[in-house]
Design a protein around this nucleic acid. Sequence first.
DNA 1: AGCAAGAATGAATGATCATTCATTCTTGAT
DNA 2: ATCAAGAATGAATGATCATTCATTCTTGCT
Lengths: 220, 220
Amino acid sequence: MTDASATVLDVASCSTGKRRQIRPKAERRQQLIGATIRCIAQHGLSAVTMQMVTREAGLSVGIANLHFQSKENLLRETLRYVAEEYHNGQIEIMEGAAITDLGDRLDALLDFQLGRGVTQRQKMSVWFAYYGEAGARPVYQKIVSRVDRLAAQKLEALFAAIIGEGDYQDVDPRELATGYSALIDGLHLGLLVTPRELTKRRARSVARDFLRRAFPKHIY
Amino acid sequence: MTDASATVLDVASCSTGKRRQIRPKAERRQQLIGATIRCIAQHGLSAVTMQMVTREAGLSVGIANLHFQSKENLLRETLRYVAEEYHNGQIEIMEGAAITDLGDRLDALLDFQLGRGVTQRQKMSVWFAYYGEAGARPVYQKIVSRVDRLAAQKLEALFAAIIGEGDYQDVDPRELATGYSALIDGLHLGLLVTPRELTKRRARSVARDFLRRAFPKHIY
DNA sequence: AGCAAGAATGAATGATCATTCATTCTTGAT
DNA sequence: ATCAAGAATGAATGATCATTCATTCTTGCT
């Protein structure tokens, strides 16, 4: 259980495994956040220890407190990193100028949200580990809320544009955006907790169905 | 932080607060599971300690190990209890003979899933606390999977019946059931993590919209 | 009343964890 | 080549936690 953990080496580890490396602060922080993500995914948030994280990063125990002051702070920053990564990916698609057709934009969004990058067990584990604690930790709630709000607005705007373009009746963009976001979250949860019953392919199909029912002229 | 915890007294505590109570095993187990649920909701799964749970239950520290052998076992049984409670509530609605109209049955299901009983912060916190750990704990996955599977089958059957009754075209009951379940999960998550942005009323409206789009002849 | 069975207690134990800090090492400027 | 700044180390510390078990108390039976 303890031996194999050092096999996944990080970018920074050189050929001479013994020499002490001195690296810029930002790089060490990133290294530790990456190790934290891997540890949460593998052992669960409640089982993560500082020793575990620093060993996974190939560093000494003291270094985590040097760069993050406390475990709580490291966990907070890790959540912020994961949340912003997901957030930025969505925003990029919804604001990007590369795609002009609104239907294509929807497709790209769906591919991102249920594609290889996001639905890795690692990412989803971290995601829901924090959600699980969010009920008791206002700090986590605040981080997720702030990130979610902007993405929700952009999604609503995209839906509103599609509704205008397709002249769809009786469709409220805000309501639909809430539903779609919830559906994606629920599918992520299904992929994480019951991977036997829900494949990625089927998750994509389900989400596409939802969009098709709402915007039949744009999807398919 | 420590003083106020004993204010929420349990059913069993009598007027004479001092005398040692001897109660049947099943009752003590239930008492401890209830206390565990409250502790997880208030402090988060990762912060729950045996001392915390037994104090919340108004009992001594040793008693938890007497009835559950270990903390891990107590947590496992608590998850099983919460999962089965939700599961049984759904099954009862989907199998109950009291409601004959299929549209009404759908309504009842939605009211249960997003109604007062289920959407208490307490329940949802526990629910997602375990989901968060499920990625790293096969035991939790198994408990949730087994419970989910049967409910999913019943839901699919209900949808299939509605599809037959309404002669809906191009609607796959299995796909739709997966989507609806995911939507409900996602709405629960939204109610837990971003309560400011998602009210229960709106969550119900979103779920109803989903069903209306699929079964326009049955909903509204 | 007396007693056996076993439910309940909580101080004690040993393990684990986050955090600290005296020390060592590396780097870049002089 | 030397040195100051500060990055990195890891043994040590003190706190907290799950678990144990000798002891106390309650109940139901005779």
